[in-house]
């Protein structure tokens, strides 16, 4: 695959090797070296085999999770989400923003441009805050790809459950803050 895809212009999405990946390679090497020096070759070996064993268990989960994400993205296109977010800033608008945020896949390079576009086209600030909060705490894609395999189903479900009200709380608090700001500048 290397020869063929190497000449194609970069596909949308994150690059294969970015700054944080390089940083983490260095961190892995440093931590490995520290384990080797501080706790000996046996501990180093145990940690390495533990990590590789976990990797084998997790890879099928990650592949399935990415496919789930791809289906969600294909079935709920960006245009639908933008319509959800363009609506009222009442409770209904906040609920729709919560749904849109949790379905938005990808990192900050995907979510922030969308919010910026919404904000410029006149979406209410509480809606933007609710959307961003939902994207960050309820984001299905990240939960499936990273959290479920590494931290387990029970932890992930517990965290998602207690996070359900958070986007709404953030939106309502934003409304209060803005009312306060408007009053104090008057």
């Amino acid at each position: 695959m290397a020869g063929k895809s190497g000449h194609r212009p970069a596909p949308s999405g994150p690059p294969l090797l970015d700054g944080s990946t390089v940083f983490f390679v260095l961190l892995a090497l440093g931590a490995g070296l520290a384990v080797f020096l501080l706790q000996g070759a046996d501990a180093f070996h145990t940690a390495l085999t533990d990590g590789l064993g976990l990797l084998l268990l997790i890879l099928p989960i990650v592949v399935t999770a990415v496919l789930v994400g791809a289906y969600v993205q294909a079935m709920v296109p960006r245009a639908v989400m933008e319509r959800w977010l363009g609506g009222s800033s009442g409770l209904r608008g906040l609920f729709l923003a919560t749904a849109a945020g949790s379905l938005t896949p990808g990192g900050p390079f995907a979510a922030f441009p969308l919010v910026l576009a919404l904000y410029r086209s006149g979406a209410a600030i509480p809606v933007c805050v609710t959307y961003l909060t939902s994207w960050s705490v309820l984001g299905i894609n990240r939960a499936l790809v990273w959290e479920l395999p590494l931290l387990g189903t029970e932890f992930t479900l517990t965290r998602l459950l207690v996070s359900l009200p958070l986007p709404l709380i953030a939106g309502l608090l934003t409304r209060l803050l803005m009312r306060h700001l408007a009053r104090s500048t008057r």
Partner: peptide, 30 residues
């Protein structure tokens, strides 16, 4: 087409997840 989109998102993860896991298990020791 959906699977092709998934593969595009999968590629960087194939690099990141192994590195992350190995670094994580070393960090757990420390």
């Amino acid at each position: 087409r959906i699977a092709a989109g998934g593969w595009r998102q999968m590629r960087p993860l194939l690099v990141r997840i192994p590195i992350a896991l190995i670094a994580g298990s070393f960090l757990a020791m420390l």
